[in-house]
Amino acid sequence: MFRYVDCIDAGTEYCPCHLAEKGECIICSQLRGKNFCDCLNWKGTCIYEEFIWNNKKAKRIREFKEFTIENKRLIRDDLLLLQVSVNPYLAKQLNNIGSYVFLKKPGSPLCFATPVSIMDSDIKNNLITMVVKILGVKTKDLLECKDKVELKGPYWNGIQGQIFLKNLKGNEILIVARGVAAAPCVMAAKKLIKANNKIIVVLEKGRGNGNFAKERFKSLGCEVYDVNMINYNDYSLSEEFKNLLLELIKKNNFKVTISGGSDEFHRLYLNFVYALDKSLKFATVNNAIITCGEGICGSCEVKLDRGIIKSCKQQYNPAEVFINLRGEGRK
């Protein structure tokens, strides 16, 4: 299988980072204790060269800054919609597939920092929109924010498999999303539609009035379907959902599908559609526990056959993580 090694920060203004300084760069062999070049993923700049020219130091790390909350309301008992006005730089940088930020209540200690995906970034008004699921200590703390929030960003690794979404033009793409994981899918749909792709979205009906993002997908021009995806008694895909997928895959020529759900859901869904179409490529919402976002703390580690990667910074091929290849010689 294609060994896909990518650091989402490589080649950006945050590269080289502290990993390079410590001889742990994800991409560059010269910054991983080797003496010769063995570049694992060229993104247009030589990281070693950038490092030398930066006086052998990491670039400055992202820092928390205070911004104003423009809109904050519960759209369900456990879902908080947040709109924050940011500076033009952040608005632009966050207007990308997979972008996320860390949020915390002003004054709260750093360990309260919560990673939150960007659902939309309005670059005219410098307004970003996010949806936070209130789950535990960190998100409850966020709920207490008044008119200010501390924000650190931009980060971009909220979606895995981005290589398959790049340079797509005039293709058909299937997005399948449940719950709060629909938020990053809205951003993905927006960007993919800008590139003239046709997007079909299947959403989990769930409880209440269906997914919060439904109207957003519709207003972007996506074709949207509502289903109940899961049999909860044995956590399997429902017949209704499977039939819809069969029908959609027959009717359309999907190149890529984006899965917005838990890792358990990714596994079920990817295996099911892969069996229908082996040429399908996958992108998945990143569910790792992201704490520092800088590849340092290790809380986001994912085990691949070829070793452990830090999934806050490093990309993987979702097929490599979620698909059970039987007898296909996984290496």
Binding site: C28, C39, T45
Partner: peptide, 28 residues
Amino acid sequence: GPIGNCLRYGNGCSMCILRCPSYGPRIS
């Protein structure tokens, strides 16, 4: 090359005909 080798063992990238910045590095 590529660039990292030209830097570590030489005076840096000289922008030669192989044009690593444009086409990506040679690998073994």
